[in-house]
Design a binder for these strands. Structure first.
Length: 942
DNA sequence: GCAAGGTC
């Protein structure tokens, strides 16, 4: 069997279709991976890299004493499978194959992906022949040629890719760990560093600095309005910008009617049709539709997967000769753009336009199938239309303009006006995305005199450079060689998710700025695009076998070690600097109590809250939900009333939770509970809030003296308030405990929400566990709880609630467990049966049980059953054991039945004792006889 | 938990 391994599924399918040459190709799916069968051949697609480079085990712990960030530089690396299903299928197929052809993309990464496949195949099958097919387009001609002239895998080319992998990993991981640890940032707040992302971030930071440092300069522009045949036309002074006001004013003052036409210059201008889309130019065009780079790529990938456009990751702006342009045009005749397609067919330029970049990997992005809005939805259809119209435009003729430039003289001052008229609309007919704006002018004759209506002198200022839009940044990255067509948009998305940059256009955040500056100061090399350039030239040398991979990596290691020499020497300074300068990002504004600074604080675990910078002198604070609900961050929006920044809770994979102004939130969410305090009417609650006491807890924890002073009420009133607050606080605590109890036990299901159930229960008066324990099952069922859940909830609530009570009474947790296991749950159950019976059921000693029963009965204000002292019990035991025939086991049984000494045994009814203990009745009578005799003897002896 | 590069 001949196995052909392609870089991706779609290539595998197309290769099979073409090589099958009209024969049927059967698709088979194995664990979700497709294979294509024809004759004795199977093709299979990888998913790009199916293995990933990582450090060997032992480097997982960032804080390890031995595996320090620096140690990663020299750490051994291994390849770990990331696409396990594909890897195992590939190896399964390899075992059966007698020839394997690597048919991955024809570029460095493709060769490396091919080598990864090669190694996996080799591991599974030592003998199989492995060759390599190279083609730059999946066409019949190319493939036939490639498969008839296969060669060996180019290990030098793959090694160049491996060098890049190693260098990126060791620089990225070691520096990321170093700087994150120094700044004491972990989890979602790590500070990442990388060969591509850091120079990209640096560009955004630099631009922001230019903007901040920009000093605007004033300049003046002179223009006039004149009239011709009732039409008012503007002409500008040919001097352009005047940098001195006096000169501009002088020119203005000299400008006098009439305006004399000095010269009329006519010309033509060719307006070239645009060149085909590669990834970058496509992203730029999509940005004008309002799509972010990542969104544009996501939609394009989707259209590609569904066969409407070609592969969207390409650097090529030249259609390959093999591309069947006429065939595509024919296909597009069935699209909603039929008329435009037909127009292009009728007016086609002899040769399609071509851009500057040409590569062999994939053709420029072009449409491949007909689609309608209904099939795609609005956004995807807009993108589809863009790609389709761009394709049409590259086949359409150039546009022709007639240009007109008129020079005027006004008392020695020269003015000019220009016009443009579209003579041949050409490609503009099918591509409305770049507008063709005409300025039509009437005819002028030299010497013609015209009246000036108005002269205007505008004072203007030079503008700072613009911030980068995503698409501008991607263009700039491409110019600098940063990233690839497939990764540039991901790099920007990464900078956003790391909270290094934000907004559109892009602005650096405080963290982004601080980290960049710190790295510029201590490890300059990683912040510059030069590192990528050097890497590329080294890779070139590896490809040409002029240097080895190991040699290049060694050089990179040495450089990184030198960077670490400086970083480690300054670790403390770097860490302090980043921490101090970024603390600001958590500041929200002024403390309403003392005027200090309120800031979000994150503690260990999931605790987060808003506290005052003057703590402990000022204890004002605002609680926040735990970080389980989202990590609290500041947003740019500010509360008009309190002047505080808004707070947002962010969580991976969840919609952010906007708290808004934390103080407004605090006030609103606690008002209702404050109003539950019986001794506080609405007016008093207002006054309490005016003193910055917003929660029942704050009120309950206030001292009456302090409160009386603040509120201007009597000490009695204040005492009453704090006491009532404490009661309400306990009620609130029980309420939230009950809510949590329900949440923990109700399984999330579609069509019902906790909130709904909880309000329904609240309306039914079930707000704490004690009420839930006694609840009518019907009430619960009405609130949306299922039968099974109702039963479980009530019985769990009974256990939890009564356990709380019993614990409070003083029953130790260990014993509690035994009682619960024996079904003794309610306190009443302790008085309803004899201690001995309890002892029997739980297996605990009678004395322990008696201690517990004593406590519970006292608590319930019920009579405590007769107790036996330790001494009594010991003496009784001795007495009983002295009775001949009575075994230890039987004594134990008697004890549990409440018979603790000889007298007690004598006094009992043998029938009932036999029933309670299981000792035969006759035996008991025998024991009683023995006892009686003993007693009588004792009396006689007396 | 880290990079950048493939692809979905």
């Amino acid at each position: 069997m001949h196995l052909i391994v392609a870089e991706k599924n779609i290539s595998a399918r197309r290769i099979a279709e073409i090589l099958a040459g009209g024969k049927k190709v059967a698709e088979q799916k194995d664990a979700g991976v497709s294979t294509y069968h024809f004759g004795d051949t199977i093709t299979v697609g990888l998913r790009g890299h199916v293995v990933e480079i990582d450090f060997e085990p032992g480097y997982q712990n960032w804080r390890s004493e031995t595996a320090t960030p620096r140690s990663l530089i020299d750490a051994k690396t291994i390849k770990v499978p990331t696409e396990k299903k594909i890897v195992s299928l590939l190896q399964k197929l390899a075992k059966k194959a007698d020839r394997v052809t690597i048919a991955t993309d024809f570029d460095t990464e493709g060769e490396l992906i091919g080598k990864e496949a090669y190694e996996l195949v080799r591991a599974a099958n030592k003998k199989v022949t492995i060759d390599r097919a190279r083609f730059s387009a999946i066409t019949e001609q190319e493939l036939k040629h490639a498969f008839s002239t296969t060669t060996e895998l180019d290990f030098a080319l793959a090694a160049a890719g491996e060098a890049r992998q190693s260098i990126d990993l060791m620089w990225g991981a070691s520096l990321t760990r170093f700087i994150s640890l120094a700044a004491r940032r972990g989890g979602q707040n790590i500070l990442s560093v990388g060969r591509v992302q850091t120079p990209t971030l640096s560009m955004i930071v630099d631009r922001e600095k230019e903007i901040v440092a920009f000093v605007p300069e004033k300049y003046w522009q002179l223009a006039l309005d004149f009239e011709k045949r009732g039409e008012v036309i503007e002409a500008r002074h040919t001097n352009g910008r005047f940098h001195e006001k006096a000169a501009a004013e002088q020119a203005r003052d000299r400008t006098q009617s009439p305006l004399v036409v000095k010269e009329v210059r006519t010309g033509t201008k060719q307006d070239r049709a645009p060149s085909p889309f590669d990834t970058t130019t496509y992203i730029v065009a999509a940005a004008r539709l309002g799509l972010s780079a990542a969104n544009a790529m996501r939609i394009a990938e989707d259209l590609y997967m569904n066969g409407f456009i070609s592969y969207p990751r390409t650097d090529n702006t030249v259609y390959p000769p093999s591309l069947d342009i006429s065939g595509i045009l024919n296909t597009l005749k069935t699209s909603p753009f039929k008329k435009d397609v037909e127009w292009v067919i009728a007016h086609r330029r002899p040769v399609p336009t071509r851009g500057k970049k040409s590569s062999t990997d994939h053709p420029p992005i072009h449409p491949t199938g007909a689609a309608t809005r209904e099939m795609l939805g609005d956004d995807a259809f807009r993108v589809y239309e863009l790609v389709l119209r761009r394709f049409l435009a590259t086949l359409a003729p150039d546009a022709q303009w007639k240009t007109l430039k008129i020079l005027f003289d006004a008392n020695g001052e020269e003015y000019t006006t220009t016009g443009g008229q579209l003579m041949e609309q050409g490609w503009h007919a099918v591509y409305p995305f770049s507008e063709a704006r005409e300025t039509l002018l009437p005819e002028f004759a030299t010497g013609e005199k015209l009246p000036i209506r108005k002269v205007t002198l505008d004072e203007k200022e030079t503008l700072p450079p613009a911030r980068y839009t995503q698409s501008k940044l991607i263009q700039r990255m491409e110019e600098l060689g940063l990233g690839t067509k497939s990764t540039r948009h991901e790099v920007i998305a990464k900078l956003v998710s790391r909270k290094y940059v934000e907004g559109a256009p892009l602005r650096p955040t405080l963290v982004g700025r601080v980290v960049t500056e710190s790295l510029e100061q201590h490890a300059d090399i990683i912040t510059k695009p030069d590192m990528t350039r050097t890497l590329e030239s080294h890779m070139q040398l590896i490809k040409q076998s002029q240097r080895t991979r190991e040699d290049v990596i060694r050089e990179s290691r040495d450089m990184l070690h030198r960077a670490f020499d400086q970083l480690e020497a300054n670790e403390q300074v770097i860490g302090d600097d980043i921490r101090n300068r970024t603390a600001e990002e958590m500041n929200l504004g002024k403390c309403p109590v003392c005027g200090g600074t309120l800031a979000i604080k994150h503690l260990r675990g999931n605790t987060q809250f808003i506290g005052c910078s003057r703590y402990p002198d000022c204890s004002f604070n605002i609680g926040l939900p735990t970080a389980q609900w989202g990590f609290a961050i500041r947003t740019d929006e500010k509360c008009e009333k309190h002047g505080l920044n808004f707070v947002r809770l962010v969580r991976k994979g969840a919609r952010p939770w906007d708290i808004g102004c934390p103080l407004c939130h605090q006030i609103n969410s606690n008002r209702e509970s404050l109003e539950e305090i019986p001794s506080a009417d609405k007016g008093l609650v207002d006054r309490i809030q005016a003193c910055h006491i917003y929660t029942v807890a704050d009120l309950a924890h206030s001292t009456p003296e302090d409160l009386a002073k603040k509120l201007g009420v009597s000490l009695e009133k204040a005492t009453e308030l704090t006491r009532d607050a404490a009661v309400v606080l306990e009620k609130l605590r029980r309420r939230s405990e009950c809510r949590k109890f329900m949440r923990d036990r109700l399984i999330p299901r579609k069509g019902r929400s906790y909130a709904k159930i909880l309000t329904a229960l609240k309306d039914a008066g079930i707000t704490d566990l004690s009420r839930l324990a006694q609840a009518d099952p019907a009430t619960l069922k009405k609130s949306g709880v299922t039968d099974a859940e109702t039963e479980q909830l009530i019985s769990d609530a009974k256990i939890v609630y009564h356990s709380q009570v019993l614990k409070e009474i003083g029953i130790p947790a260990v014993s509690l467990k035994k009682y619960i296991a024996a079904g003794i749950i309610e306190p009443e159950a302790f008085c309803a049966q004899s201690p001995a019976a309890l002892s029997e059921k739980t297996g605990m000693s009678l004395s322990t049980i008696q201690k517990h029963v004593d406590k519970v009965c006292t608590y319930l204000k019920k009579p405590v059953p007769k107790k036996f002292s330790k001494l009594q019990i010991e003496r009784g035991k001795k007495q009983l054991l002295a009775v001949s025939g009575l075994s230890t086991l039987q004594v134990e049984k008697l004890f549990r039945a409440g018979i603790v000494d000889g007298d007690a045994l004598l006094a009992t009814d043998p029938v009932s004792v036999a029933a309670a203990t299981g000792i035969p009745e006759q035996k008991i009578r025998d024991y009683q006889k023995v006892l009686k005799r003993k007693k009588d003897t004792a009396i006689i002896q007396l």
